[in-house]
Amino acid sequence: MSLLSLIFDALLGLGLLWLAWRAVSSPGLFASVVLFMVFGFVMAITWARLGAPDLALAEAAISAGLTGALLLSACKAALTDTGNDNELPDEPSTVRRRWPAALICTGLGAVLSIVMIQVAANRAAVPPALAEAVTTHPLDNPITVMLLDLRGYDTLLEVTVLLTAFLGVRILLEQTELPRLHAPRATTPLMVDPLLAMATPVLLMTALYLFWTGMEAPGGAFQAGALLGALGVMYTLTGRFEPLDRTPVLLRLGLILGPGMFAIFACLALTWSEWPLAYPAGATGAAAVAIEFTLMISIAVTLTLLFSATPGLHARHMGVRHP
């Protein structure tokens, strides 16, 4: 059995390396992007194999799924921006400084892999103080305990990074007239309506399930937000969300809700505790759910807008799909 698992691990590792190599070396843009997406999914399998379902879920949803969608829309942007219908513009495939770079990277790769094997072989256990803090915490899922309480400050900053990325994109979009990536179509293909009609409730339900279960099991605001973001992406792609030139106030509110409420909570904590970001005794669970909910909303809104590469979106003929 252990030989079998060794072979399986080796196959996964070699597969990852091969896909990464092809993604960085293949001349075509589209081929590289597709290879990278496959790389992302194999990576998710690897993490599941390593026994980290939380992370595998996040990797599959956010990293492989949404990054893949972003990259594909970058391919599409390369088409639209150059006014070219079918053919991707010559993505410069020239490779420069190949030998010095190869030398540096081979050396670095060799040193890194030796050291990393050594480091990972350290049999470090979870520090007892940390294990105790996590098990006695009012929240049940260790990851959620870390994300929202012990390292909540990082989480606050991380959603601020997401918001900052949108603000940066917003600046870029204000600077020039980039062609719309997802212009609404006159007709939607036949099968798309029924798919969305079924997918919407399923995705909403799954997102809420992930959000709720995150309190005690794998899942949480990030996975749920990413799923909702994916739903938003589907709505944008099928023209149910139309691009706007400005960000309506409701969307702005959605964007800043997560970091804003979290930061306000951090400040308010001084009224019931000595430290910023501390949870009120006895109300940890409720406060955590409230924060996670605002984070989920903000993540979903920001990811949808980042994907659409527009300042704002608004809904079009919602609910009257079959006149």
Binding site: P127, A129, D149, L150, D154, P276, Y279
Partner: peptide, 13 residues
């Protein structure tokens, strides 16, 4: 030395 959320290192930030 300030502990955010009241968690000193190595638990918190």
């Amino acid at each position: 030395v300030l502990a955010l959320g009241g968690h000193f290192a190595p638990l918190g930030i």
